[in-house]
Write a protein that binds this DNA or RNA. Structure first.
Length: 539
DNA sequence: TGTTCGGGAAAGGTATAATG
DNA sequence: CATTATACCTTTCCCGAACA
């Protein structure tokens, strides 16, 4: 729906125009009126007017001046003039100024409405066009962002033909950097998010960019990309200030500190930042990038919220972690289900590395391999099915790649969590296994009470050794296996003794006792009375 | 994890006497 | 005669320790 503003210094004419338009079926939702040019401008300011219908000749401000101002401030607004025959030239001039059309007075209703209708249609077309253009622009910008990222990643990987080509592409993509100028890189590694912010990784990156760019916008030409490690990277080139103002620019390190503080304060995001040495030209980008990444990885041991530079690390240092070689090994502890000891050892390992300074990366890998090997070994042994695997919720990337961890804390946390789930699965499957075994034994006993049911026979039946079966049975049911067999036999005997046809010695034989005195002895012990007494009492 | 071993405890087995 | 009690011997159980 559209809004119309009628401007004329004759209230009578205004009213009649208003009435005509209101009675029509034009797509008009609101009709405002103004009796002078300045009032018209005020109405335009407060209402959202699409079409102005104005007399061309008014006191204090004439139509030409009005249209000048309207076009300047509301370029989308259509203006239609009403003009007397005597001002015909004047009206034509107004059209030159951008008026939509003019109508000669007196104007017929038909003419008026037709003209307004045309204005409305044109306005609509223009709106649609504008919308289309904006969508297009947005899509282009989004696409450009992706293309930029891809291109920047290629530059960091050294995947470009020559500097000239890189330069042309940079200009085309509106990346405000000069590949022939020295570039410093600012890296962000997300160390952690304070609980309760509900931030996921994407939001974190968004927050980092927001805050970082606030600090970087003035002093640097920059662009932004994310790499496969999840690092947010800013290549920076100082904004040209050719030595005239010698006031020292704040160092990038101090800017980094400010960004870090802001992030921690406003977004509760902990980041470690790295300021690279300058790369003289785009040719040195890949080397600088590799160095930066390896420093960020090495710095895992130093903690979180660091500001690093290329001098932070000496890669040649050696290190040794004594708890790595302690026996029993981590995997032994794990496989024998000694959960408490396992956790202690794991904490010890990480603790020892945490107290060391300047841990060489090789040691970090050794630690990771040592721990992950124990996990993988146990998983292979347990052979979990798909559901169990899901229950374990092991991020296989993490289990197999040291790179998946931003900090030592993450790594420890991950392994402790995984261990807990793995141990519980182990106990579960052990329980299931034993349960099945016991059930099988019980079923066998119930079915063949008259057979020999010694521990050895039962163990043979389920294919485990006798002592082992005895142990498992007792662990699982709380009673001894022979106790169970005897009880089952006597219970059956009690049932059979109710049958008056059966002699005691026949019953004894049916439940596996060939020796009558012995049967009697056992029966009395369990039931409290001898078989004969029981029989006479119940028949 | 599963098995083997040794030894003391417990249960099984047998012969025999006793009982109703 | 069927059953039970008793004495005595044999076998089995079962635990911890050690092993693979």
């Amino acid at each position: 729906m559209h809004r119309i503003l009628i401007v004329d210094d004759e209230p009578l004419l205004v009213n009649s125009l208003q009435r005509v338009i209101r009675m029509s079926d034009l797509a008009v939702s609101d009709i405002a009126v103004a009796l002078s040019g300045s009032e018209a401008l005020a109405k335009l300011q407060s209402h959202n007017v699409d079409i102005v219908l104005s007399d061309i000749r008014m006191p204090e401000m004439d139509g030409i001046e009005l249209i000048r101002q309207v076009h300047e401030r509301w370029p989308c607004c259509k203006v239609i003039f009403l003009t007397g025959f005597s001002q015909f030239d004047y009206a034509q001039k107004a059209v030159q100024y951008g008026a939509f059309d003019y109508l000669l007075k007196p104007v017929s209703d038909r003419e008026l409405l037709d003209c307004i209708d045309r204005a409305i249609r044109q306005r609509q077309r223009e709106t649609e066009q504008l919308l289309f253009q904006e969508t297009l622009k947005k899509q282009y910008e989004e696409g450009l962002a992706v293309i930029r990222q891809t291109f920047l990643r290629k530059l960091l990987a050294g995947d470009f033909a020559n500097i000239g080509q890189a330069k042309r592409k940079m200009e085309k993509m509106q990346i405000g950097l000069d590949p022939e100028e020295p570039t410093v890189f600012l890296f962000f590694r997300i160390d952690g998010i304070r609980d309760g912010t509900g931030f996921d990784e994407d939001l974190c990156v968004f927050a980092i960019r927001n805050i970082a760019e606030e600090f970087l916008n003035k002093p640097f030409h920059h662009c932004c990309l994310e790499d496969d490690n999840g690092y947010v990277i800013y290549p920076l080139q100082p904004v040209g200030r050719p030595d005239r103002e010698k006031e020292p620019a704040p160092s990038l390190e101090s800017i980094a500190e400010s960004i870090q503080e802001s992030l921690a304060f406003y977004s509760k995001i902990q980041v470690t930042m790295l300021v690279s040495d300058p790369a003289p030209s785009v040719r040195q980008w890949p080397e600088t990038y590799r160095t930066a990444v390896s420093i960020l990885r090495h710095s895992l041991f130093l903690g979180t919220s660091l500001i690093l530079d290329f001098q932070s690390f000496d890669f040649r240092k050696e290190g040794h972690v004594s708890s790595l070689s302690r026996l029993p090994s981590l995997h032994t502890l794990m496989e024998s289900g000694r959960e408490r000891e396992f956790r202690e050892r794991l904490r010890e390992l990480f603790g020892e590395i945490r107290t060391m300074q300047d841990v060489p990366f090789g040691l970090y890998i050794e630690l990771f391999q040592h721990v992950s090997a124990a996990f993988i070994r146990l998983i292979n042994k347990l052979k979990p099915n798909r559901e169990q695997m899901q229950e374990l919720d092991l991020d296989l990337d993490k289990l197999t790649s040291v790179r998946a961890f931003a900090t030592l804390d993450h790594m420890e946390h991950y392994f402790l969590g995984a261990a807990e789930r793995l141990f519980s699965l182990m106990n579960q499957s052990a329980k299931d296994h034993v349960g099945a075994l016991v059930a099988k034994v019980k079923l066998h006993v119930e079915n063949r009470l008259s057979d020999e049911l010694s521990l050895t026979a039962l163990a043979d039946h389920v294919h485990v050794s006798a002592p082992y079966l005895s142990k498992l049975f007792k662990q699982h049911t709380g009673e001894g296996i022979n106790e169970y067999v005897t009880h089952a036999r006597i219970m059956r005997a009690k049932e059979l003794l109710r049958d008056p046809q059966l002699k005691v010695y026949e019953v004894a034989a049916k439940v596996g006792y060939d020796n009558i005195p012995y049967f009697t002895k056992v029966f009395k012990k369990v039931v409290g009375v001898t078989p004969q007494e029981f029989k006479s009492a119940n028949s």
